[in-house]
Nucleic acid binder design. Structure first.
Lengths: 243, 243
DNA sequence: CCTGTATCATACTCGCCGGTAGCCATCCTA
DNA sequence: TAGGATGGCTACCGGCGAGTATGATACAGG
């Protein structure tokens, strides 16, 4: 009976995590071949997403057809559809792949033993690198209007998580005296905006690496435009300034 | 002979300039009626562009059809095409309308009698307001990929003009001692990026006006994250800090 | 009243592109 | 070696949307 066979496609796994615990145990199982095929499938799936990110980077989401992506992979369009359900999901996966390193940066910063400003700097450094990565464009430019309500909500919540994380670090830094008093909301917007915008002017084969750009930006944020006394400008670790 | 009649459409005038010197003289010309029609045409044309900007704001460029814009104006699609040649030009005009106030801000700042930081602040204030304006989204999001090479080049040059203007003000401020030493290129990117990003989260009917947002951002840039000595934080006009 | 021009609508063309139907090859498993 | 699962292809559909052909109306000038 020729009913739909395509339903049997295995559910998606998180795009970027490198096969967490599945391949470690049961090395000589009789299903080894099947497991290897599954792993192959993940590799191919990631290649599809990577190709999509690359195409979106260069031509934009709407100017990229799935035929383009298929051609870049030297396969046909239905093959792409074998790995993802639709174009929208491609954008979504690229977004997630881009934002994931930022989330882990927050987790790592949390267990860092330093003042708020240093922790914030650590996060912003990873943030900048993520924006300059191959998924940066997709992460930054994924728009509500191009996504279904459910995915849009998902993305919104992830973005909000990042935003709240920055605000929290700002507040903590202000409490421990390592950050100049400011409005956390506006400051977080300014910081994230400056870093997000990297995706607009940064394309591969640039002279600076993502890390270098992030470092340069952080220096700007840290010092501000107004001139500082020399002693203060050279200071590294912050305590309460005068109080 | 039914050849193309549409060629007779009058050439476009700069979108936003308010009928510069045409209506001042020759008030009783016999072509008064014809001149009035021309003025009407300009008004309608601007309405079309404004409607396009509004639609692009809400749904994005690619998700907006010219039927949408026509419907918003309660006219039909050919009417829209009577005032603009194609969709691309609509985006371009929106971009120009958005960026023009920034250019005038630079011109005004140039004849301002103040140090570099103050002049930069004045420009950034107008910059922020422009980004938060009805054309802000179009100005910020107009992408090369959606435009023909010639228009893309035009937009690129306008953007570059703004960028170079910011860098120049930074250098001037560093020379007169009102701005902390920094890399002008990276700092300009950071400033412009933060302000550009306003277009992503700012939608009308927000609690803050564009001017308020710009002021808040400028305060962030000016102070920086590192804490400042109280005397320094309160300082207003800058001279050389300690040298 | 006649003619040209400005303005706008109805009703189309047409290409692109997201997504699918159906078929074929291969390979693992029993 | 049969038979199912897996992975891939060619060929198509359907709709959306940019842009247009054609003609109707309004009005100005002679």
């Amino acid at each position: 009976m020729p009913t739909s066979r395509r339903k049997s496609a295995p559910a998606r796994a998180p795009v970027k995590s490198g096969s967490p615990a599945v391949t470690t145990a049961l090395q000589r199982s009789p299903w080894r071949a099947s497991r290897e095929r599954l792993r192959d499938r993940q590799i191919k799936r990631e290649a599809v997403i990577r190709a999509a990110a690359h195409a979106f980077n260069h031509k934009g989401y709407h100017n990229t057809s799935l035929d383009d992506i298929a051609a870049a992979l030297e396969v046909s369009k239905p093959t792409v559809y074998y790995y993802v359900t639709n174009k929208e999901q491609l954008l979504f996966e690229c977004f997630v792949a881009g934002i994931e390193p930022i989330r882990t940066a927050f987790r790592k910063a949390r267990k860092l033993k330093a003042n708020g400003r240093e922790r914030l700097k650590a996060v912003l450094g990873h943030y900048g690198q993520a924006v300059a990565s191959e998924f940066g464009w997709c992460m930054v430019r994924a728009e509500d209007q191009d996504l279904s309500p459910s995915m849009s909500a998902h993305i919104k919540s992830l973005k909000s998580e990042i935003d709240q994380g920055i605000r929290r670090l700002l507040r903590e830094g202000m409490q421990d005296g390592s950050i100049h008093p400011c409005d956390p909301k506006m400051t977080a917007f300014a910081l994230a905006g400056a870093l997000n915008w990297i995706a607009h002017w940064y394309r591969e084969n640039q002279s600076m690496t993502g890390a270098e750009i992030a470092a340069a930006f952080i220096a700007v944020f840290e010092n501000g435009l107004s001139p500082r006394a020399l002693a203060e400008a050279g200071r590294r670790s912050g305590g309460a300034p005068t109080a």
